[in-house]
Design a protein around this nucleic acid. Structure first.
Length: 474
DNA sequence: ATGTTC
């Protein structure tokens, strides 16, 4: 497909609808970020998504968009459930409910300084990470797993891994209600039993950060953020369990495309109507895997609390937990009518504005926190949802890759990167030199530019900038 | 992302 972009504003570009697209594409970016988005066929994927049955309004790309499996990462697309709308596992991604949790410690940067090394040593020794390698909480078997898949972060809290108030500051209060553990296969359960409370690898990390700058004092204060405060950002997902759920259901849907008369420009877009046995089965399994991801981040939170208590004698509060790989059934106004939509956000977060009725009262006035992890050498951001977001209240989820992992390995050595970061005062606890090198800050877009474009496009508003102090790398 | 190629 030949992709041509039309500038609608300095922050918004349109891909004109042409057969077989059912809706246009919309790319949120700046002229500087656009060439990055256009690389690796990500924009062709935006156009491909616009062909899905039941898709409404537009196929969207966030400023951090890059190439992914079927759908681009940084892509958002909604389908009309009552109009044959489909759900596609590729629109969620292999790491179901991959997401970010931000914690805030009762200590500032200066106060932590003399204890930072000890803190990092404890975190480095106690946070399970890397491929395989076990987790903090070993489940006894399928029966216990099913309870976790239904209860999510709440199940972890019930078992002493956290406090009930944590759940207030989790999206969906830590669990999606429509989880169906019976749709999670034996292999997925087997892979997940040993991995609850583990970081994983790739771009997953746990960072000790300091609030570097506040843009909106009132909202930052509502989130518990003030200049100099020490925070912890946890980025991880649903490990082997989510991966296996995606694999299993993609296979099923790939085989049922003909039965539903669905033709696709790319088989990786495999999908089924939301209101079909295959669609419902996937959504039930996806929600269960999402709840696993939330429980996983809850367990890691407790390990962080233990580390801060031992190293610095201080407590740690939960600021918020968001998933950025999800499909959710939501109601939105489309062409003047309220419609039930299946909103796919793959590498994109929900970003509800102040006053949205689905926010808990503690966040109603401020709006929903948007957590944007950057890179271990630059910065991360907290934004907040705002009114007028026509991308179904969605925002970016990170900096977005520009180098392949292969290219990063050609350019950078892990040991040299560690020395570079340490010389900047960033303590590093890698799990492998190769994994560290693959995640070199140069492999990513400029997160300041991505966050700025997200605000410029009216998707969310800047609240605070966080800089890394210590990195525990998956 | 991923028992890094069922």
């Amino acid at each position: 497909m030949d992709i041509s972009l039309v500038a609608e504003s300095p922050f918004r570009f349109r891909i004109e609808r042409r057969a077989p697209m059912r809706v246009p594409g919309v790319v949120f970016a700046t002229a500087d970020l656009l060439p990055r988005a256009a690389s690796g066929e990500a924009l062709e994927q935006v156009a491909n998504v616009a062909t899905l049955p039941g898709v409404v309004r537009a196929s969207y790309a966030m400023p951090d968009v890059h190439w992914g499996y079927g759908f681009p990462i940084g892509g958002v697309a909604a389908t009309d459930v009552e109009d044959g709308g489909v759900v596609s596992p590729g629109g969620v991604g292999f790491d179901i409910s991959c997401g970010v949790r931000l914690l805030a410690a009762d200590i500032d940067r200066a106060g932590l300084e003399p204890r930072l090394r000890k803190l990092m040593d404890i975190l480095g020794d106690t946070i399970p990470r890397g491929m395989g390698r076990g987790g903090l909480w070993k489940l006894s078997g399928r029966a216990e797993m099913e309870k976790l898949l239904v209860g999510g972060a709440g199940y972890a809290v019930e078992h002493g891994h956290g406090v009930p108030s944590d759940l207030t500051f989790c999206e969906d209060e830590g669990a999606l209600e429509d989880a169906d553990p019976s749709q999670v296969g034996a292999r997925a359960v087997e892979r997940g039993l040993q991995q609850v409370g583990s970081l994983g690898s790739g771009n997953h990390f746990l960072e000790v950060q300091a609030v570097d700058r506040v843009y909106d004092e009132r909202t930052a204060s509502a989130f518990g953020l003030r200049p100099g405060r020490i925070c912890v950002m946890i980025h991880c997902g649903s490990r082997g369990l989510g991966h296996q759920v995606c694999t299993d259901h993609v296979r099923v849907m790939d085989r049922t495309l003909d039965r539903y008369g669905i033709s696709l420009p790319d088989r990786q877009l495999a999908c089924a109507p939301v209101e079909s046995p295959e669609g419902r089965a996937y959504l039930g399994a996806m929600s269960a895997a999402a709840n696993y991801g939330r429980a996983n981040r809850q367990l890691l939170t407790q390990a962080v609390r233990r580390a801060f208590a031992t190293a610095a004698g201080v407590g740690v509060d939960l600021v918020y937990d968001v998933s950025h790989n999800m499909a959710k059934i939501e109601t939105h106004r489309v062409d003047g009518a309220r419609r039930r939509l299946c909103v796919h956000r793959k590498g994109a977060t929900l970003a509800l504005p102040p006053g949205d009725p689905s926010l808990p009262e503690e966040l109603a006035e401020a709006g929903q926190p948007v957590l944007v992890p950057g890179t271990m050498g630059t910065a991360s951001y907290v934004l907040v949802g705002e009114k007028g977001n026509d991308a179904f209240h969605s925002a970016c989820h990170g900096a977005g890759r520009v180098w392949s992992r292969h290219q990063a390995l050609r350019e950078v050595r892990g040991e040299a990167l560690r020395d570079d970061l340490e010389s900047k005062g960033i303590a590093v606890r890698p799990s492998s030199w190769r994994g560290l090198a693959e995640e070199t800050p140069e492999a990513y877009k400029d997160v300041d530019a991505v966050a700025g474009a997200t605000e410029g496009a009216g998707l969310a508003r800047l609240v605070a900038r966080l800089v890394p102090v210590g990195v525990v790398k998956g």
